[in-house]
C-alpha cells in the first residue's frame, strides 16, 4: 500500500476540527486511536459485536471498528475523551464510579457512550429500555447489574454525588 492512496478527511472530533490522513477504507477506530491518539476508544472484537469501540457520529452511536473513515467527512464525532466537561464528569461517569459500573474498565468507555446515548433519547428509561439500550455493549466483569444501577442513578441527578 502506498501513501499516495491516502486521502484527507476533515471532521469535528470532540468539538475540534481535525484533518485525518488515511486510506479511505481505514477504520475510524484506527484513525482515532493511532492518528489522533484518542486511545479511550477500545477494540474488543473488530467485528461490531462487543461495542467497546462505540463513539457518537452526529449523535448516533456506532461501532467505530465498522466505519470507514471516508464516511465521516464533515461529521461530528464524539469519543469518551469528549464526555467530561473540563474536570467535571458527566452524571453517567460519576454514577459508574459511585455504583460500581466499571470493573476492569475496558468496556467502560463504550458503555458510558451507550448509556449517554440512551439517556439522550429516553430521559427516564425503564429497566427493559436500559437492557435493550445497552445490549450492543458486552461486559464480562459486572453481569450488568451495577451498570443498570448506574444508569438509573444517573437519571436521578439529585442522587448523584458530583
Amino acid at each position: 500500500m502506498s501513501e499516495v492512496n491516502k486521502v484527507e478527511i476533515t471532521c469535528a472530533v470532540n468539538g475540534e476540527e481535525r484533518v485525518l490522513h488515511a486510506y479511505p477504507m481505514a477504520r475510524l477506530l484506527d484513525a482515532l486511536r493511532e492518528e489522533l491518539r484518542l486511545t479511550g476508544t477500545k477494540e474488543g472484537c473488530g467485528e461490531g459485536e462487543c461495542g467497546a469501540c462505540s463513539v457518537l457520529i452526529n449523535g448516533e452511536i456506532v461501532n467505530s471498528c465498522l466505519v470507514p473513515v471516508a464516511q465521516v467527512a464533515g461529521a461530528e464525532i464524539k469519543t469518551i475523551e469528549g464526555i467530561a466537561n473540563d474536570q467535571k464528569l458527566h452524571a453517567v461517569q460519576e454514577a459508574f464510579i459511585q455504583h460500581g459500573g466499571a470493573q476492569c474498565g475496558i468496556c467502560t468507555p463504550g458503555m458510558v457512550i451507550a448509556a449517554i446515548n440512551l439517556l439522550e433519547k429516553t430521559e427516564k428509561p425503564t429497566e427493559a429500555e436500559i437492557r435493550d439500550g445497552l445490549a450492543g455493549n458486552l461486559c464480562r466483569c459486572t453481569g450488568y447489574m451495577k451498570i443498570f444501577e448506574a444508569v438509573v442513578r444517573a437519571c436521578q441527578e439529585e442522587d448523584v454525588k458530583v
Binding site: 475523551e81 464510579i97 459500573g101 466499571a102
Partner: peptide, 21 residues
C-alpha cells in the same frame, strides 16, 4: 464501606492506559 474504586475516574474517562494504548 463501599468506597469508590481507586482507578475509577481513569476508567470512566478513557484515561486508563491499557497495553495497546
Amino acid at each position: 464501606k463501599s468506597v469508590p474504586r481507586k482507578e475509577g475516574r481513569d476508567k470512566v474517562t478513557g484515561a486508563a492506559r491499557y497495553v495497546d494504548d
